[in-house]
């Protein structure tokens, strides 16, 4: 798995690429927590993730909870079919904010509006 982390208008965008399992989920967790501590809005681009397991999901849940406590946004963007399938199995598709687009500008442009 590769993580590319960038800033778009103060929103942190993490682009994940590859398989997320126990061998790399600690690195994902660390990257997400760093952005959470910065109290930034976070978008995780999951379009390039071919596989995710419970250890990767656990990292996303922790970041979601951090953002909720911070009052910032935590958005999952364009999850691939395998990711969406695991999110649905875990019944987390109703918990996370999930958007189809990976374009961060559109999201911050209209805060408070429905996102998807």
């Amino acid at each position: 798995m590769n993580i590319t982390s960038t800033l778009h208008n103060e929103m942190a965008v993490l682009v994940l690429d590859g398989d997320v399992d126990l061998s790399c989920s600690p690195a994902l967790r660390k990257a997400l927590l760093e952005r959470t501590f910065e109290r930034r809005d976070i978008m995780v681009d999951l379009s390039g993730v071919g596989y995710i397991d419970s250890s990767g999901i656990a990292g996303l849940v922790e970041a979601y909870q951090g953002a909720r406590d911070n009052g910032t946004r935590f958005i999952l963007a364009a999850p691939s079919a395998p990711v969406l399938r695991v999110l649905r199995l875990a019944r987390l598709d109703r918990v996370f904010t999930i958007v189809d687009s990976v374009e961060p500008i559109a999201v911050v442009a209209s805060p408070g509006e429905p996102l998807s």
Binding site: D53, S54, A58, V86, L89, A90
Partner: peptide
């Protein structure tokens, strides 16, 4: 177990 066990049972 937590989520992992739930996933195993689900699928």
């Amino acid at each position: 177990g937590g989520l992992g066990t739930h996933l195993m049972r689900s699928v």
